[in-house]
Simulated scan of single mutants.
Amino acid sequence: MRVLGLGRLAVLTIAATATVAVASEDPRIRIDLPPDVRETFLEHMRTHMTSLDEVLQLVGSGRLREAGALARKEMAIGQGLGIGRHMPPEFREMGFAFHRAADDFAKVTATVADPPDAAAWKALVAGLAAITTQCAGCHGAFRVR
């Protein structure tokens, strides 16, 4: 077993202390959920992330209608599990905005020509940005425990 030098030990100690300090100074609103609700919620968020990735891959391959159908199926309003009742109103509104953005994106994909022109690509990218803006805003404002 290798012994750490005092310098390395000091660096590791400072790094660990800094990590704890950053975690304790997290400015995001903490949402405490019952363990079963927390696990369901986190799994649902991972599903959203996977679905968003699949939507981006479909857009990248030019399969725009499929991308919209997937966004509507997996991320639009009506896909919730009722977890919102455990969340503060601000969180619920951000969640609804995410779902609306996914539905709006799906509507855009249904109207673009095949192949899409420059204006259609601009609308598609704006629609995707509206979705990811909600993701970033929520993750920046809240943390779940």
Rank of each mutant, 00 (worst) to 15 (best):
T19F: 03
L64K: 00
R30P: 02
F96E: 08
T50D: 10
R30E: 15
F41M: 07
M94H: 06
R72F: 14
F98R: 05
A97H: 05
D103Q: 09
V55K: 04
A71M: 09
R28S: 08
P89F: 05
F96Y: 07
V112I: 10
T17Y: 11
I29R: 05
T17N: 07
L42F: 00
F98P: 07
L81S: 11
A106G: 04
M94D: 11
V108G: 11
V22F: 12
G62A: 13
G68L: 13
S24C: 10
R92D: 12
R65D: 14
E25F: 00
P35Q: 00
F41Y: 10
S61H: 11
G95A: 13
R30S: 12
R63N: 06
A18S: 14
Q57Y: 02
I31W: 14
R92H: 03
E54G: 03
T19N: 01
L52T: 01
A67V: 08
A18M: 14
Q57W: 00
I77R: 06
H48D: 09
G80L: 07
P88I: 08
E66G: 15
A16L: 13
V59N: 06
V59R: 07
G78Q: 00
M45F: 07
Q57V: 04
T47M: 08
A97V: 08
R85S: 10
L56C: 03
L52N: 01
T19A: 12
D103S: 13
D104P: 07
M45T: 13
T50Q: 09
K73W: 03
G68F: 10
A71H: 06
V55I: 09
M94P: 03
A110D: 15
I31N: 14
M49W: 11
I83L: 11
H48M: 02
